[in-house]
Computed example of a mutant assay.
Amino acid sequence: MKLAFIALLLGTSAVAATLPSRTVLSGECCPGTVWTPDSKALLFLDGPPARASTGFYEVAATGGEVTRRFSSIAYFSPKLRWAVRPGSGEATVLERLADGKRFTLPTFGADVTWNDAEDGLAYTRSDTSGNYDRRATRVYVADAFGSPRNVATLYGGGVSGWVDDTTLLLSGKSAPGNRDRELFTLNTRSGAKKTLRTALGFRGISLSPDGARVLYTISFDSAARNGLWLQSTAGSTPTEINDYGAYRWRDAGRFLLMPLKTDGDAHVLRQYTVSLNGWNTLGDLGDQVRQGDWNVSPDGKLLNFLSAKDGNVWVLTLP
């Protein structure tokens, strides 16, 4: 127990071993797989010649038979309650799958960002010309079956997610001539704004499942600002995470990171526990992930990845 605890605090790779995994999809058919809300299956878009018709297909996390889940092509909300179907013009149709009830929004083909309850959403409309850093982006919110309203205008940025059902996390510049962007929260009812950080730019902005924390990367800025950072969305001082790579939240208090590999070796999976402010190494994949294509199941128990070796989709049970 004592050695295990020391390894947790120090993040040593001495305990790393290859994590057992299993192939659930083969034939290089299925990049971009996502988990179903119950964590029991993976969804993916496919069609001829592998499948009889184009649609969204499903396979169990344990592998086995592939079945068609949705016959139409759409953006589906994270909890699979809504289908978002852009039209050829400005109108996008949003359909509640439980009863087929529909309403439209003028998103000009853009997808929408749902709050956790999926009774409200946000989307952006941006100018279509000019330098991105100076291009105005207007942020709209709407309740389900309601009319949109403009809650913010920013430059060179957009929506990063919902902190809670009434508060957005946004990034961008408040004026086109500004050097720095802001990472900030905005209450869509009261208009209250809280700036979390300013920097030349933010990448990989990722909210924890409960919205209480955010991970982000700053690069091409000063040495004091560059790096991977963890911060409370309530506005506390950010904590620098002394590692670099691709990251995903496992649950509200832990995130996983695959450090950048340049030597061709297998990707290693590390876990950061917020309450301990420390790392432990879970193991390696025995493979590399192709093009950053990996995800953690909503219950935090499973991980899927697209293999760089064979192009198949693999699933492993997280320690």
Rank of each mutant, 00 (worst) to 15 (best):
D38V: 05
P37L: 09
R81W: 04
A136R: 14
A14K: 10
R22K: 13
K40Q: 15
V274Y: 04
C29M: 08
W162P: 03
R213K: 15
R181G: 01
Y244W: 14
D221W: 10
G87L: 13
G32E: 11
D299W: 09
V34S: 12
A199P: 00
G158V: 02
A83G: 12
P106W: 14
R203E: 04
D99E: 04
G63E: 00
S88E: 12
L169G: 02
D127K: 12
G156R: 09
G130R: 05
S160M: 09
K79P: 03
V151N: 09
A110D: 12
F202Q: 06
G156E: 02
F76S: 00
L303C: 04
R134F: 02
L94H: 09
V84M: 13
N131W: 06
A175P: 01
P259N: 09
A192W: 05
P48L: 08
T18S: 08
T195G: 00
V139F: 09
G253C: 01
D164F: 02
A234H: 12
Q271W: 12
N226M: 07
F220L: 08
T12F: 10
L196N: 01
R22E: 01
L3K: 11
G300V: 06
S232Y: 10
G157H: 03
G89Q: 15
G87S: 15
D164M: 02
L316M: 12
F108Q: 14
F56I: 15
K301V: 00
